[in-house]
């Protein structure tokens, strides 16, 4: 199977100067429709990897390709969500969802004439993540978990081929986090979108991903790769099985090594 997202021997230095590289010799392949998780000690360049894959940053050396195309500028087939939901407070939740459509082609041109169709799409998406009827509310009227759900909807509204999640559940309490794991699990199953999830929560990575990549401390590169074979759809109960705990423990070992090497 060919790679959908490919990074080959990528080195990146912020600002383009001679400073210490954020990532060095980073290679990674993610298949189409795969759910990949990237874990590593903090400051290992996980977020840099996301910026490289979406074309927000250009690598100093090496190749970044998505969908068979070399990435030279922002690729418009991605959706992004972050730890901070960054919804715009002067827009209602529904208007926030429509924001990507006001920017990305071809929706940009169609939006005005086909407003009703897009609003229906946004409302259907809201319903799917459990925010039915919340579209008219302002983001600051929603709880943190609800804001994060809305942020996920915004990242998916333009039907991206690639979804980039940068610790999206990091700021949430444990129960809300597990609820949102199931939300993202179901959305990914339904849309077959390729997902790259950056996280430092090993249980989250193992529960959601088909494959987990471990990164070393700065300058970051991939030190280990682990297929997660649990059958889908996965139930939250599997996180309490010995097999699950064993994989988490194994990954924990890789991270400990990465931290010790730093």
């Amino acid at each position: 199977m060919t790679a959908f997202v490919e990074l080959n021997e990528v080195t990146h230095v912020y600002g383009g100067g001679d400073g210490p590289p954020a990532v060095e010799g980073l290679s990674l392949k993610v298949r189409e429709g795969e759910f990949a998780a990237i874990v590593g000690p903090s400051g290992c360049g996980k977020s840099t990897l996301m910026k490289l894959a979406t074309g927000l940053q250009k690598p100093k050396a090496g190749l970044v390709a998505v969908a068979g195309q070399r990435v030279a500028e922002p690729i418009k087939i991605t959706g992004m969500a972050f730890q901070n939901p960054v919804l715009l407070p002067w827009r209602t939740t529904l208007e926030n969802l429509l924001l990507p459509l006001e920017v990305v082609q071809p929706h940009r041109q169609r939006l005005r004439a086909n407003k009703a169709e897009y609003v229906a799409r946004a409302e259907a998406l809201l319903e799917k993540v459990g925010l039915k009827g919340m579209g008219a509310k302002y983001p600051w009227e929603l709880s943190g978990g609800m804001q994060q759900r809305a942020s996920l909807c915004r990242s998916l509204i333009h039907e991206p081929k690639l979804l980039m999640l940068d610790e999206p559940f990091g700021a949430l309490d444990a129960f809300t986090r597990e609820e949102l794991w199931c939300v993202i699990r179901d959305l990914q199953a339904e849309r077959a979108v390729t997902v790259i999830l950056v996280t430092h929560d090993l249980r989250e990575a193992v529960f959601l991903a088909d494959r987990v990549f471990c990164m070393s401390a700065r300058p970051g590169k991939i030190t280990a790769e682990r297929e997660i074979g649990f059958a889908r759809p996965r139930d939250l109960e599997i996180t309490y099985t010995p097999e699950f705990a064993e994989i988490v423990h194994e990954l924990r070992g890789h991270i400990r090594q990465a931290r010790a090497a730093a």
């Binding site: 910026k51 979406t54 074309g55 927000l56 500028e73 922002p74 690729i75 418009k76 991605t78 992004m80 972050f82 901070n84 960054v86 715009l88 924001l99 990507p100 920017v103 990305v104 082609q105 915004r154 990242s155 333009h158 980039m164």
Partner: peptide, 11 residues
């Protein structure tokens, strides 16, 4: 992050 979301879409 807001800028990244929009820039990644080609804004």
């Amino acid at each position: 992050e807001t800028e990244d979301v929009l820039k990644a879409l080609g804004a």
